[in-house]
Design a protein around this nucleic acid. Sequence first.
DNA 1: CAACAGGTTTGTA
DNA 2: TACAAACCTGTT
Length: 271
Amino acid sequence: MKYKKFDNCIEIYSKQDFNPQHILECGQIFSYHKDGEVYHVYSKDKHAQIEETNEGYKIICDDVHYFENFFDLKTDYSKIKEKLYNFEILQKPIQFGYGIRILKNDIFEVIVSFIISANNNIKRIQKIINALKQKCAHGTNFPKHEELLALSQEDFYKLGLGYRAPQLYKALRQIDEQQILQWQDLPTPQLRKKLLLLSGVGPKVADCILLFGYSRKDVFPVDTWINKMYNKYYSPLNNREKIANNLVNIFGDLSGYAQQYLFYYQRSGRE
DNA sequence: CAACAGGTTTGTA
DNA sequence: TACAAACCTGTT
């Protein structure tokens, strides 16, 4: 995909391999909003806004290097889609969500966000994350580890975390900032085991953290939508871990990408 | 009002 | 290892 970096923006010359709606609304991130035709995205203490142009899109931001990596601009999604198109089940999902890209978000932010996401809907997840940001007096910046450590379980309840409040409280005390970065060197299965030890992190959340935080594409997060899809198009199973395993065996190192196209399509209700 | 929402944890065979 | 049931909160 062609793009060019400037001091305060990145110009993308494609509408096929980059679509802000597809990217932001395919369930991988919660810190974004749409203002008219402009999308705003937030990661850590950084912000970008995306505007459509004649040739493609313009990402306006003050840290071009960060968002080049964040939006995974160096990866050739045309090639990925071409490979995945050989799977018949993916053809319509790819036509529908052609502009999806898998973000490389901050690991700590992803862990916290997806603990909150458990058995929860996007609208409420966003509400809770915004409340957390407000509570830590940062407006749009994602709270740092030490700032969240300063909050009590009761604080989390009041912010609407519900029964995830004690889970997040405990997880924050299990997390070692240096360690979660060092985990990047571990192979996916070992890293997954580490994540599963965190309070509030089960198989699905662990796979989301692996995919959106650690950029592991050899995982297949199975949520209710993928679960429904699988039981409709493959031989029905009631065990989500087995479903995830089977799907990874089918899609291999492209699993993470396949999951996003399928999820986005399935949840759109277009199937 | 019961069921469900982009699951995890805990308790019981 | 497998399977229920409980769990915050908001919407249908």
